[in-house]
Design a binder for these strands. Structure first.
Lengths: 327, 327
DNA sequence: CGCCAATCCGTGAACGTTCACGGGAGCGTT
DNA sequence: AACGCTCCCGTGAACGTTCACGGATTGGCG
């Protein structure tokens, strides 16, 4: 548990002053070549590493942003995170990733600790704004996929309406009439995506869409499709809450002896890269996931830097139909 | 670009001293209930947030570890990262994630910047130890999946030998004799996994194993299988460098009209959760990915905290055959 | 009334670095 | 010889917080 080696130790060993050591290490000018080398040698000798705290304290740059994600193992969030990391790297910012494990308790715990570690936070939150505000105590925050009422927040909006309409158009054009949906079983109320689906169906004069609920996993999707087809064997197409569920459905369909897309068309939501590894490749209402992550980071960074934030209309990510093989 | 609001501002507004503000915010004792409330109100009013730098400077706790990963979109590394995040959260440590985008240049850039932001680093590096050491300048480092020679490093060793032997045993028992491998095409030299494969084959008296090279992606795996089967149509089984490649191979096999595992058995490496969403579910030589990440973080954290590091034998992660459906 | 303890609060110092400024040495110019 | 310029280096201050200590006020008790 030895004391930390400081810049003064290096200075003493090299026979110079603090400032000269600082100059040597930061490649500032105003220093002789030979003394610079001497300082560098001394630093290496002593195993000196500058304290990031002391350094951060005096120069105000160095921004790090907290990225809060419900579940890194969910490929959707992985892609968002990847986009965020890329954007941050381009700007020289740092990202601390927090995985809340889909748990409210963990989310609270994360919020508790995050304020003292980052300059701003972005991500997926499920707490209401009042509680968020209370925990964050003034920390700039960017909410993804969710609108804000308090002006202190910023948000990245996801618009899937157009994409879902395209998907249903695509199915109807191909002759489908009996189209079901696999919503997710997580929250109490039906999802926004389900609303888009219902609207799109109504627009084609197709009513009473059949809906099943799936846990957010491939197995959940498989089970839900089983159940749904058990009740409504005449369905010729299904739209799912997301790609994970769709991939489960794909597998279940094959087990049931249904060829995709001939006997059953499947359209997912998210447009994951992963959709290409299954057979047939998944047709999906695609979101630009990397862009979502990049926008979130960009906005968060601007908020802390005091730059002019991105305008509302640029914070919108729209989905489009990505036709592959499953429909 | 207003000045930062400091603890002194809060103190002035609340009509107390710095120290009292500090006490109020950190739930220390020795403070009257009413003044504490007054301070808290003032802090909220002003939007005060303590500087993490100043705080970190004076109290020496708060460790953050850098996690360096070649490609977060690769599900294998995602699982490792998830394990790392979980372990870090349990310990109250923070993790800054760096994605080097599979590029040496980015890896160098990351190393350049990482030393000033974290207390230790863990992850996958492709630079040689000498250069690593030069860039890291004394920063504790844990190498994953790779042995170290310099005692200053620590490493998480991956042993796949037993698992690969199990895999080949499994195939041979099922009657397979003509078994090929899809190695990865990245580095110059053949992989360790290929060595294990060759050894296992030799043990069964099966020589001259046929090997193809695949880019690390599903498409790469598909292409490589095409090519391999083109040259050696009599193969009845393939072992692949990893699951991603295997999933591509799976898809390619189906396109070629080969049923898996009847006409062609496929065994991957990694044991990704993802292997269950494809059909048939992927048989694989499985690694405990979460444990890899957790061990890396644990060891890195111990190094910075000065705790006794984990002994060599605990830093070993062994692979075992995970039989699902594709073989 | 005097004393002690408990409770609450404030003041200097320290953490380790960079910034702003100043100063000395050496050399050339007038 | 005086001056100015360039090059190199050092000293005080500042960043914002917590720690260690000491002081003031109050209440209780003999």
């Amino acid at each position: 548990m030895s004391k930390r080696v400081t810049i003064n130790d290096v200075a003493r060993v090299a026979g110079v002053s603090r400032q000269t050591v600082s100059r040597a290490l930061n490649d500032k000018g105003e220093i002789d070549g030979s003394t610079k080398q001497r300082v560098l040698d001394a630093a290496r000798e002593l195993g000196y590493r500058p304290s990031r705290f002391a350094r951060g304290l005096v120069r105000q740059d160095s921004t790090t942003i907290g990225l809060v994600i419900p579940d890194l193992l969910n490929p959707f969030f992985t892609e968002v995170a990847a986009g965020a990391l890329e954007a941050a790297r381009a700007r020289g910012w740092h990202v601390i990733v927090y995985d809340t494990a889909d748990s409210i308790a963990e989310e609270r715990g994360t919020l508790e600790v995050v304020t003292s570690q980052v300059d701003a936070v972005a991500g997926y939150f499920s707490l209401d704004e009042a509680e968020l505000d209370r925990h964050l105590s003034g920390l700039p925050a960017v909410l993804i996929g969710r609108d804000h009422r308090m002006p202190r927040f910023s948000s990245i909006r996801i618009d899937g309406e157009k994409g879902v309409h395209e998907a249903i158009d695509h199915l109807v054009t191909a002759g489908h009439r009996r189209i079901g949906m696999l919503d997710h079983a997580g929250r109490a109320e039906p999802s926004l995506r389900r609303d888009w689906f219902t609207d799109a169906m109504n627009e084609h004069g197709l009513h009473a869409p059949v809906v099943g609920n799936a846990v957010q996993s491939a197995d959940g999707g498989a089970e839900a499709l089983h159940e749904l087809l058990g009740q409504h064997p005449d369905l010729t197409a299904v739209f799912t809450y997301n790609d994970i569920i769709a991939m489960g459905a794909l597998k279940a369909a094959r087990k049931l002896g249904k060829a995709v897309p001939r006997d059953l068309a499947v359209i997912g939501f998210d447009g994951l890269q992963l959709g290409t590894v299954v057979d047939p490749a998944l047709t999906s209402v695609a979101l630009d996931t990397r862009r979502i992550g990049a926008l979130a980071i960009e906005q968060a960074g601007r908020l802390v830097a005091g730059e002019t934030p991105l305008p509302e209309e640029e914070l919108l990510v729209s989905a489009v139909l990505l036709v592959r093989e499953s429909a």
